[in-house]
Write a protein that binds this DNA or RNA. Structure first.
Lengths: 187, 187
DNA sequence: CTAGGCGATGTCAGTAACTGACATCATCTG
DNA sequence: CAGATGATGTCAGTTACTGACATCGCCTAG
């Protein structure tokens, strides 16, 4: 595992995860991570914009959601389109449940990481809204449907990560959305 | 304006705002800010946990919301309680509209500041939810009402900051909430 | 087979955010 | 007037992050 071995980015991510679990986020320096991956600090920053980013690597969530929104049947409502995209994203997350739970724990301990997580969710909302607009959904509706979907995603993720291991995440999305509808109507 | 003059924290905030407007956030160092306020870098960090925080100083928003939620009439629904708290918060913000708009522009230019803004919104949601639980509102309902309120607040703020100067912000909150109800129901 | 191009990595020096330890100053209190 | 107290200054250090340039290994044209 050194210099010219393949998948430097992946090795950095794995090294980071291990170290964060072993000794915590802030007691791990970027130099530590790079060393474990057989690389240098400078190279770390070529692959990840900053230290936090190594925990939020995949654009795959955004990419998959974009695709799902684009390919959704024509007769669905915006919120239904978003819901389906979010449900699919859940499957991606829960396919490595142990890591997802570790990750959730690391993030929960560090406000700076929670910030990044929220920012990523914001990005997802932007992506979803953009996808809806592409389909001709009016701006306001697109934004709102996207934000609601992401809100449901976030809350479902929290419940799933904090709940029993046997619970499945995807169904929680519709549960949360139904609750949202109930609460929003209680004005 | 030096060393032992009063309100060091306020002077730092004002210096920071001026410099951010004049030359941008990242071309302004903490040393610059401290110098303009007649203080040292070290003192800056005694008043603000980090450079970004100087733009997000007030706990007054959270404090006011807490109070509003605690004192709301007993017969209101959770979402209505939250809505009123958020509407009141709008008045606080729009009482210095020029600065609020400058601030919104600075934040819009810097992803790191958007992160912090979202984190603050998350904190507000936590505060609102906590206040509702104090009143005996069930956990799930409290969380959802709070998140919806904050979502409406965020979107209303965006529209207000981007819109005409004569527009009032508070009424936008209910507009957004009504839209949310409409979109959420379209499943 | 070799020369050169090219992308990924290394090296080095530098900036600036942030922190801990300790000294100093102004004010308040007895 | 002396000591307590809280705010500030000073200094040294760590670490995240960046720019400029050198080096390495592979790939391709000739």
């Amino acid at each position: 595992m050194s210099r010219w071995d393949p998948d430097a980015k992946g090795r950095l991510a794995m090294a980071a995860r291990e170290l964060f679990v072993e000794q915590g986020f802030d007691r791990t320096t970027v130099a530590d991570i790079a060393a474990r991956a057989g690389l240098t600090e400078r190279t770390f920053f070529r692959h990840y914009a900053d230290k936090r980013e190594v925990l939020f690597a995949g654009d795959w969530l955004a990419a998959r959601m974009t695709e799902d929104v684009a390919e959704a049947p024509a007769d669905l409502t915006p919120i239904e389109i978003v819901t389906r995209a979010v449900e699919n994203a859940c499957d991606g997350i829960t396919s490595s449940p142990d890591w997802s739970r570790d990750r959730a724990r690391i993030i929960a301990d560090h406000p700076e990481l929670q910030e990044r997580e929220l920012a990523k969710m914001g990005m997802l909302a932007g992506v979803l809204a953009g996808g809806l607009r592409e389909r001709g959904v009016p701006d306001v509706t697109a934004t709102l449907a996207a934000e609601l979907g992401v809100l449901a995603f976030r809350l479902a993720y929290e419940r799933w990560a904090g709940g029993r291991r046997s619970t499945r995440m995807a169904p929680l999305v519709r549960v949360v959305l139904a609750e949202i509808e109930g609460v929003a109507g209680g004005a």
